[in-house]
Amino acid sequence: MTLPLDFYELDFQAMGTACSISIYAESSDGARKKCEPAVTDVARLEAKYSRYLSDSFLSRINLAAEQGRSIEVDDETALLLDYAQTCHAESKGMFDITSGLLRRAWNFQPEGQTAVPDAASLDTLLERVGWQKLDWHAPKLAFTIPGMELDFGGIVKEYAADRAATLLRDQGVAHALVNLGGDICVAGPQADDRPWRVAISDPSSPTQELRIVEVSQGALASSGSYARCIEIEGIRYGHLLNPLTGFPVKGTLAATVVADQCIVAGSLATIALLNEAGAARFLKDAGLPFLIISSDGDIDDRL
């Protein structure tokens, strides 16, 4: 006999953001048990790829990067690097996991800086930015010049959402939704087969919902430059930086993409923003449902 399924929500904090798993299960204990492998895996990935934890594997990579050495990586990291390489190629160099270094020239805290960085300081950073400056032949990653830095932002949290949904499925869960700070991947629709209703918030007032998207399969991810931004001489600068110029991207405030995989949705949303005014064109060409909000507030809703 199967018991009726009830709705449970498990909230947790990981990867610097609020996370939750919405799940239909027979009991509260059952829900917790079924969520456990997924939550553990998110924690595992955070410990492995956080750039804030000094003992993370990413920090070991970045030590090699700092010293201009090479390092051998495990299979999972190799596949993430392969993925990052594909993103770099498909975005014509705009999506670049070496670009995090550029944040050193910008301070996105409120009132963090009053003038744009000077060209000379940006240039010294740009010299050490560029995927093409890495020599990547799995499993060996070689940094040809010292002082570089890798950052899996825009990849790992989305990957973690995909894995969490798969781990839930592996537990026999057919009705769950994983939400890692807005990166969403579902393991089946709601218990009555209705789609999940996901709210997309309005960048101008984040507590306000702009649109409800119905999701019964696949994933949804958003990328936005509105959450952290500064205003210098009347111009708003978002925290997403162009790896070729060192300047924040303009033109598009936020992009939401629906795809089969969260990692694909997330990187397409990020590449769209990096394309600035070409964001809509890029996502139209990609052929997936999307919603973008331009910096002057126009909404292009193709969800």
């Binding site: 999972e76 993925y83 594909t86 995909d162 894995r163 798969t166 694909v264």
Partner: peptide
Amino acid sequence: LMALSASAVALPGV
């Protein structure tokens, strides 16, 4: 999209 999907599904658990 095909390139990204192909690369994504090579990852374990995607």
